[in-house]
Design a binder for these strands. Structure first.
Lengths: 333, 333
DNA sequence: TTGAAAGCGTTACCAC
DNA sequence: GTGGTAACGCTTTCAA
């Protein structure tokens, strides 16, 4: 049996409530008794029971982070930033991998409610998850990170996906490309949809007609990029450039391109999205749209804590994307 | 105010203890009342308060995982496996990035004790952390993952570092290399030290004299690999091959090699360690020693739970390493 | 099968 | 400045 506040009280010859006061740094304590209590704490190697404390104070100082997969470097980056900031504010974070599986997600949400976490960072939202929020399945403050929910105008932090994708497409157009394909992410995420929008918007702005067979739906992973690129390579009228909805898709696409004997950037220019570490080590180093992952995770926690502690809900926050120019694109004429 | 078990009891016209029994699936309950209680739970959208429950039952169903940095793909892989298995067993996991900083680590340990976590996975141990264990700073079951502590013979899961490094070195020797350098990890980790041992052992076994200036201490990251490789490149008698203590070091080394106008594998053959995803996408794809990260994380949780629930402590477990042959090495004569 | 009551380890309020 | 007491929301033992 672990030592309790009572044991300490007894050892110091005071009442438990007095011990509690010194632990919590209340001022109205004589220096004398504080010393006695502290030495008793030391001697007994006492650690307060957080459960009891939390039950009483209704604070658990814990957040949770729902992401599809921590082994995905993009989400690892978000998690890194989030954990660091949470820790600095005295909060722990529970890691939840959902694999984009509805069941795991809802199991976790129930579990987290039982654990009385103060807030949840949702980096897994699907476009139609409006239901989750509306149905009050989330009973505690949350913030959407990197993926929005249609119709929810608040509490989200994400990159400006439209602008990012526009930037990528515009860059290729500036290089002289006219036949630009897009490998998209899964259509049930706003991230994927908005990146499509940005791509189309740039096309339109520069008077390039949108071609339906120049776009394919991937899954934000290598496999998807490979698969979609394969089918693009079957086209009669091959594109000269590809905008991918994330770096992993680009990796898969490059694989497919090489397999057919083509070269990047000689035959196909490619722009990725995310700027995961891998991007700079690819051959050729991948030109991509950078998302400041750690900062986004950091910001998510800051805004979430504001919501929890000061009841301020942020409007949807858009981070400005940046193009990182490397060597996966070439100029054509 | 959140609804409590009392509210449910009142709504169902029974005593709180009865509600508790149906929630916990006790058998001695009439079907009739069970139904009434369940519908009351549903109607009130009741969620049990886990804090109160845990305070009473002394089970929080929570583990913690201490790692240097989740943004490092190796640790992300471990975490992925651990979280998945923990979740399957009904446990949550608190993520703790320590940046290999003693202070963060000890802060976390205190915090986790307060939170009454059932167990801790330590993937951050330094060789001399024996003190931590001996001093009882960790009051709860733990398991060492991927890094051992000198003198502790139990509760660790790790790759057989000596064998792995031996394998890498032997492979290069088999390719005809005689001048083999080693870029090591930080000397305060057993992982780094054992990989040095394996390297030396292979050299010795094949009658190749160990050369002191063929070994340098890195930090398990790109930068370190770059730095050490730079100084190796200053040598009069250049090696023809390099065994690196992990893949990230290899990446840095390759950078330094290229910068000097040399080629991999033409001028230098390189073998990495870990087999992070990046390794297969490098140019040339990196030959490396594979660590089954997810499985190791999985195993860590399984063994930790055995320790917690059945009080069985595993002896140090060594995972067998495997060489993944790709294209960063060449035969010489 | 169900109710009553005690208690888990704290904190907070009210006395003194 | 300190002690006493109640209460946080649940589980569990004992009775009925």
């Amino acid at each position: 049996m672990r030592t309790t506040i009572k044991d300490v009280a007894k050892a110091a010859g005071v009442h438990p409530s007095t011990v509690s006061r010194v632990i919590n740094g209340k001022t109205c304590i004589s220096e004398e008794t504080a010393k006695r209590v502290n030495s008793a704490i030391e001697k007994l190697d006492y650690t307060p029971n957080g459960l009891a404390r939390s039950l009483k104070t209704k604070k658990v100082q814990t957040l949770a982070m729902l992401i599809p997969d921590i082994a995905n470097p993009f989400f690892a980056g978000l998690a890194r930033g989030a954990e660091e900031t949470a820790n600095r504010h005295g909060y722990s974070v529970i890691l939840c991998n959902t694999d984009d599986c509805r069941e795991k997600e809802s199991n976790y949400l129930r579990l987290l409610a039982e654990k009385c976490v103060e807030g949840v960072i949702l980096a897994t939202a699907k476009i139609r998850d409006k239901s989750i929020v509306e149905l009050g399945r989330i009973e505690c403050p949350y913030i959407l990170l990197s993926r929005n929910i249609k119709g929810v105008q608040e509490n989200s932090i994400s990159i400006d996906d439209i602008a990012g994708s526009y930037l990528a497409t515009e860059y290729l157009i500036g290089l002289g490309h006219q036949k630009i394909a897009h490998i998209a992410g899964p259509h049930n995420t706003t991230a994927a949809l908005d990146r499509i929008k940005g791509y189309k918007k740039a096309l339109q702005h520069y008077g390039i007609p949108f071609q339906k067979d120049y776009i394919g739906e991937g899954d934000f992973r290598n496999k998807g990029g490979y698969r979609v690129m394969r089918s693009i390579l079957e086209l009669d009228n091959l594109p000269t450039a590809i905008v991918t909805a994330n770096d992993l898709l680009a990796v898969g696409a490059i694989e497919a391109i090489r397999e057919k004997g083509y070269d990047v950037p000689l035959d196909f220019s490619i722009v990725g999205f995310d700027d995961i570490e891998l991007a700079s080590y690819l051959t050729p180093p991948l030109t991509t749209i950078r998302q400041p992952m750690a900062e986004m995770g950091h910001l998510a926690v800051v805004k979430l804590l504001e919501r929890i502690e000061k009841h301020i809900s942020p409007a949807n926050i858009l981070i400005k994307p940046e193009l990182v120019e490397r060597n996966s694109c070439r100029e054509i004429n």
